[in-house]
Design a protein around this nucleic acid. Structure first.
Lengths: 138, 138
DNA sequence: TAGACATAGTTGGGATCACCACCTAATCTG
DNA sequence: CAGATTAGGTGGTGATCCCAACTATGTCTA
């Protein structure tokens, strides 16, 4: 297998592995992967619906339903924007924040074993290379 | 941000980036990401339903429906196993193989730009580090 | 070897998810 | 102020995925 193919496969396989891990953690808390992503985003932001759609790569109508379900579960709260009467800000409730923090901890401890075989220097190198890739997204 | 956090975030972000790319390619061909994965797996295998479920991390009943829809679209074919009367083998049709090949080419040319900023040596290093991570899956 | 158990896959029911097309309300623009 | 734009929500459809239950085949054991 040539180097290019190996890299492509590595990226794809790691992505599926990560996705599977995150999905598993999410479903252990009766959440979908998308709900988990939503909570993670809201940990340090109070975006508008359109921002969420942009960030998640979803249609706005998809985000409506997503936030509906999260709100029904008591995890997030909609609040009207002061500046724009059409706009809505989404924020975590106290319970949502607790859950988001717990999920983050679980993600960390699930992913750690994957990278445990790498030295500190290798971890830094890998993080740097991944960063270079992410810079290319556009 | 510490090195560990940076690595975790890099892995997560790269995963979502890859997933978004693959989903986009899939939907351009009226496929879901899962259908794309199915075709990719079948490029060099004729697994049983249970093998597919294992590989995709899905319930067997989910794979039943997945293969149903792919078969209805003329992309895959079920065939009875010789050895085990309960078992079913899944294989690509000629059309499925054409599509799988085309999809693979599209994935390659979509991902290439991401890694274009890396030297050949860096690509090898990245592929090796990702490989080390994948070895840890268990 | 007959009966019990296990395995492969399917079916049906329910929730989520994601899209599209369309709708309302608020805001901006000419 | 009239018309276009923007933010978000609705309703409908199909895919996805799970679980529980089921059929049919295969295996094992008493």
């Amino acid at each position: 297998m040539d180097g290019e193919t190996e890299l492509l496969d590595g990226l794809v396989q790691v992505s599926f592995t990560m996705t599977a891990m995150l999905s598993k953690i999410a479903s252990a808390h009766d959440l979908s992967l998308t709900q988990l992503r939503l909570l993670a985003i809201l940990r340090d932001r109070e975006p508008r619906m359109a921002d969420l759609a942009e960030h998640l790569g979803l249609d706005r109508s998809s985000v409506s339903g997503l936030v509906d379900r999260a709100a029904r579960a008591g995890l997030v709260r909609r609040s009207a924007s002061k500046e724009d009467g059409r706009s809505v800000r989404v924020a975590l409730t106290a319970e949502g924040m607790r859950l988001a923090t717990a999920l983050h901890a679980e993600v960390t401890s699930s992913v750690d074993p994957l990278t445990a075989g790498l030295s500190a220097a290798e971890k830094n190198r890998l993080a740097a290379l991944l960063g270079r890739i992410l810079d290319r997204r556009g």
